[in-house]
């Protein structure tokens, strides 16, 4: 039940959104997410977006990894 795949937001309508990942589309709830827009990636769990991915932080982590090795 715990899917950990980031999905991209295609469309938002009220407290619902359409997301996709690798060609799979899904309708999800976004009722406890603030400040999201089409184009953002979110973590989807049990039919709801639970958090947004931060591209800047992701780049930082990758950069840090390259520095430590």
């Amino acid at each position: 039940m715990c899917l950990a795949i980031p999905m991209k937001i295609l469309k938002i309508e009220g407290d619902k959104a359409v997301v996709s990942s690798s060609g799979v589309r899904r309708n999800i709830g976004i009722s406890f997410m603030k400040n999201i827009k089409p184009g953002d990636y979110v973590i989807v769990h049990a039919g709801f977006a639970i958090e947004k991915l931060d591209p800047v932080k992701a780049e930082e982590t990758l950069k840090l990894l390259e520095e430590i090795i």
Binding site: M1, C2, G29, F32, H45, A46, G47, F48, I50
Partner: peptide
């Protein structure tokens, strides 16, 4: 992780 989805 699941509780808020059920709560909603």
């Amino acid at each position: 992780t699941t509780a808020p989805t059920v709560g909603a």
